[in-house]
Design a protein around this nucleic acid. Structure first.
Lengths: 256, 256
DNA sequence: ACAATTTGAGTCAATATGACTCAAATATAC
DNA sequence: GTATATTTGAGTCATATTGACTCAAATTGT
């Protein structure tokens, strides 16, 4: 294992852009909750969670690296993604995290330690996926991938919690411009689903009848079926009209 | 000159993060027009324009590098800036531009050519400054700095025109969240100024009486004087209330 | 004094918003 | 089988906002 990691690090030192990493905040929506994919690292006693990420090969476009990383985690190829922040403080590295993990098999290894002590500039992307399509796979060399509610993603390693928080703010800003909801929901969904999704993104409640009125009037979705068949009164199923605008808010309107 | 450049390149190779550059789209507002700062490079017959930019020292925070670059161009220290895009295609370098500039004194120099043929990932920031405060200074080793109307910034070198276009789109997205107008206007301004500024940012006309009504009702500006004393009927002077919201649009409202 | 411009102020119908109520359709409890 | 709690769909109504206007006041140049 450690030899594989060393070999990988050596290949990165040859083929990747130095000191540059990519991190992805992959959003999904499930059980009325906005979630992100994180990877568990279990080393000895300690456990930490990090965002999916990777490096950029010299021959690889930055956006191709992003798509590769998202595919590695989710298996999906054509997804909506957007660069939203860059984290690049001079002290930004995994050095502290590694020193805490004293029990790790990796801890003693100078070469690995040196790699993770390096300063990395992290170019951060948010990505939107249909939760129901996903089969989670951990990032290379990491132990397990899992969904984590955005609300609970407060204790990720290094600055990764800040990255998630920043991603959520950017997601709000993108609401009027990008087809956020149609990329997070399955092809057929109910209005209560959409309502919960927007509430989850904005982090506040929205009057249900008013939300319903506004969405239906906008003509962005079409009824495609009946019944949801689960809890109480069946809900109508809808699909986004494609071709039409799929952003939830009127672009460029801004009140003028 | 060429020796100074070589010395600078050697210092960068030692002290800067490799293959990472920073570019700044510095916006100003003058004569009812949204403008950006560009640097002229006059080498032999050809001339090209590039955005202010630079590199990040190993010991320097990314955001400090940005502030340093803006200060180098404008002399200003505390400005509003925001990261908005990263350009990082595998083929992204100044190699082509350099080969075109055959007449350049630099062209023959292998060391300089090698540096500018490198692939650079450019982290891009937009910055807002009060045009009236600025004394332009060219970026290190470049010939002259000047303001260029955003509309006319279509023929900058490499991908810099795309960077400007992307910056303008991001500026629109930031309108509801950041104090854009108050950072572009002088402390005292007229409503026609503000009107022209917002039209310039959005790239479309806005009904003047309606704009006036909306801004005044929002209570974000206060009348601080009379008369502008130039063309026709004198306009009232206003200042932004600070403490109050200074973003032009209602944050988080988004129509729900 | 008069015309052309620019700024400030106002009108009014149409539309959108916010805060509600109410009934229909279902699962579960009784 | 009936009652009850939930969830979904539909509607009401007063108020606020928007979009498309008109019009007068203050200035400069003729």
């Amino acid at each position: 294992m450690i030899d594989k990691i060393k070999k990988y690090i050596r290949s990165l030192e040859k083929e990747a852009i130095p000191q540059l990493s990519v991190n992805c905040v992959i959003f999904g929506f499930h059980e009325k909750t906005l979630k992100v994919i994180v990877n568990k690292i279990a080393l000895g006693q300690s456990t930490m969670f990090v965002l999916p990420g990777g490096y950029v090969k010299q021959t690889e476009n930055l956006t191709d690296a992003v798509q590769r990383i998202v595919k590695e985690s989710t298996g999906l190829e054509k997804i909506l993604f957007k660069q939203f922040a860059v984290f690049g403080d001079a002290s930004r590295s995994f050095e502290k995290e590694f020193k805490v993990l004293r029990t790790s098999k990796l801890d003693g290894d100078a070469e690995v330690l040196k790699w993770f002590s390096k300063r990395f500039i992290s170019v951060c992307y948010l990505a939107l996926v249909d939760f129901s399509k996903i089969e989670l796979k951990p990032t290379q060399f990491l132990d397990a991938a899992q969904w984590l509610s955005v609300e609970k993603a407060k204790t990720l390693a290094m600055d990764h919690s800040h990255i998630v928080e920043s991603a959520r703010e950017s997601l709000i800003k993108e609401l009027p411009y990008a087809p956020i909801a149609s990329n997070l929901l399955p092809p057929k969904f109910t209005l209560p689903d959409l309502h919960a999704l927007v509430e989850g993104i904005l982090g506040r409640t929205i009057d249900r009848p008013n939300f319903r009125r506004k969405i239906l009037k906008s003509d962005m979705i079409v009824k495609v079926g009946q019944d949801n068949s689960n809890k109480r009164r069946p809900a109508d199923l809808y699909a986004f009209r494609h071709g039409k605008k799929t952003s939830l808010i009127d672009e460029y309107k801004l009140g003028f």
